[in-house]
Structure formats: structure tokens, C-alpha cells
Simulated scan of single mutants.
Amino acid sequence: MLDFNTLAEFSRTHCISICAFLVPAILLATSLTIVLTVLGRPTHQVLQTAGIASIFAFVMVLHVYTWFAIGVVMAPTYILLCLAITCLLSNLVAILYQKYQVNSMSFSNNA
């Protein structure tokens, strides 16, 4: 069975390692999503990169919430939370933009 307290303690104990991996992973994956969207790549490629970037960002949100749960309220926790939320929103906008482009192209081809 999965124990939340054990996972939260692991997250807080290995904070530097987790953040050293997640911050660049979030930035690279979200940047790749944006680049693929701007280049007009197929929808499945954009969805894959956005999905991976969103998983990384969601894990960062959970990691930050483990710190909030024990009362750690500092600038880095808010900065990391803002980074994760910004990347989640960027990926959502990229997906919606990609869907809008595909729909508008199909309407223009039918006319």
C-alpha cells in the first residue's frame, strides 16, 4: 500500500535532487511543446510532449505541497509552484492552439 507520509518525507529529504531534475525537465519539455506547436507538427507529437511536461509539472506541484503541509512558506516554494503552474497553463494553451489550428484547417479545406 502507498503511504503518503513516507512519500512526503522522501520528497522533503531529497528536495535538492528532485528539484535539480524537475526544473530543467519541466522547462525543456514545455519549450519542446511550444516549439512543436509553432512549427505546426502533428497533434500527436504535441500531445505527447505536453503530456510529459504536464506530468513533470504536476509532480513539482505535489512536491511543493509537501513543503506547504509542514508549514514551510518561503520564496523558493512559491517560485517553484509558479513555475509548475505556468508550465501547466502553457501546455494547455499549446494543446488548445493545436486543436484550433487543426479545426480551422479542416474548415478551410472543406470550403
Rank of each mutant, 00 (worst) to 15 (best):
A29Q: 06
A20E: 10
L39E: 14
S54N: 06
L32F: 06
V59R: 07
Q98A: 05
F56T: 00
G71H: 15
L36N: 14
L39M: 12
P76I: 00
L92K: 03
F21D: 12
V59Q: 14
S54F: 08
Q45C: 15
L22V: 03
N91Y: 02
T66I: 09
C82Q: 11
N103Q: 12
S17T: 09
C19Y: 11
N103G: 10
A8E: 03
G40I: 01
F107C: 12
L92N: 03
F10N: 06
R12N: 01
L83C: 07
C87A: 11
A50C: 12
V35M: 08
Q48N: 07
S17N: 14
F21N: 12
M74Q: 12
V102I: 05
A20V: 00
Y65C: 10
V64H: 07
A8K: 10
T49R: 10
Y100C: 06
C15S: 08
L28C: 05
L27N: 08
I16M: 12
A29H: 06
H63I: 00
L62V: 08
T86S: 04
V73Q: 13
I34A: 12
L39T: 09
A53F: 07
H63A: 01
C19A: 08
T33K: 02
M74E: 15
L39I: 05
M60K: 00
Q98M: 06
A20W: 02
Y65A: 01
R12T: 10
N110W: 11
F10M: 12
M60N: 06
L88Y: 02
T6A: 14
Q45L: 15
W67A: 13
L36R: 08
P76K: 05
L80D: 08
S31R: 05
T30K: 00
A8M: 08
Q101S: 09
V59F: 11
S104M: 03
V38K: 15
L88H: 00
F56K: 10
S11N: 05
N110S: 08
T6N: 07
L36M: 13
K99E: 06
N110T: 09
A8S: 13
E9G: 02
A57C: 04
F21Y: 14
F58E: 14
F56R: 02
M1E: 12
A84N: 03
S106W: 13
M105F: 07
L88Q: 05
T86N: 09
A84L: 04
I18M: 07
I18Y: 13
I52N: 09
N91H: 02
D3M: 09
L36F: 10
C19M: 15
L47Q: 13
N110A: 13
A20H: 03
I34K: 11
I26A: 01
Y97S: 10
I79T: 14
P42H: 00
F4M: 15
T30W: 00
L2C: 10
S104H: 14
A57Q: 11
N91G: 11
H14T: 02
T77H: 07
V102E: 11
A53L: 13
H63L: 07
Q98R: 00
V64G: 04
V61I: 09
V64I: 10
L80F: 03
I34C: 08
S108G: 04
A25T: 05
F107M: 15
V72N: 06
I18C: 04
V72S: 02
F107H: 15
C87K: 03
A94R: 00
C15G: 07
E9T: 01
A50S: 13
F58T: 15
I26L: 08
